[in-house]
């Protein structure tokens, strides 16, 4: 019932022995201690556990750890580069897009996936990309502004980082 898996998490190769019914969220938070990925509902409705699985935003509570075998996973801990905040992270700070902060990691990863596939998104695309991430504090306006700001900055600089 357990499976040996190998995956890349934030650029590092991780090997783990996981029960078939362990979720990717449990794998990240417990054995791998990457607690930046949050659990808000456990049924894929709130987006707090959003991570990138082979570049695609997914809710880690609805992915089995064993399904991620051989995959590349990015969590919030992989967003900054050597302690240097990404443009997106800095934009969240500057726009006041975090309040309690519990939705913030998932929100940033949804936005990261968006900017990776569509570097110059429309406001509608931004809303669509983050509408699966519930936030109870901010009313979303500052978050949308942060993503917009990050896109503009990245567009201006030609690269993120």
């Amino acid at each position: 019932m357990t499976h040996e898996i190998v995956l890349t998490v934030n650029g590092q190769t991780e090997r783990a022995t996981v029960p078939a019914s362990m979720t990717l969220l449990e794998l990240l938070r417990e054995p791998l201690h990457l607690t930046g990925t949050k659990e808000g509902c456990g049924i894929g409705e709130c987006g707090a556990c959003t991570v990138l699985l082979d570049g695609a935003a997914v809710t880690a509570c609805l992915v089995l750890a064993v399904e991620a075998d051989g995959c590349d996973v990015q969590t919030i801990e992989g967003e900054a580069n050597d302690g240097q905040l990404s443009t997106l992270q800095q934009a969240f700070i500057d726009a006041g897009a975090a309040q309690c902060g519990f939705c913030t990691p998932g929100m940033i990863l949804s936005a990261r996936a968006l900017l990776d596939r569509s570097p110059n998104p429309t406001d509608e695309e931004i809303v669509e990309a983050i509408a699966g991430n519930l936030c109870r504090c901010t009313g979303y306006e500052a978050i949308i502004a942060a993503v917009r700001r990050a896109a503009d900055r990245i567009g201006g600089e030609g690269s993120d980082g």
Binding site: G44, E45, G47, L53, A56, V58, L62, A129, G132, N133
Partner: peptide, 9 residues
């Protein structure tokens, strides 16, 4: 159907 993340699965 569902959220953007959900539709990736």
């Amino acid at each position: 159907i569902g959220t953007y993340q959900l539709r990736n699965r």
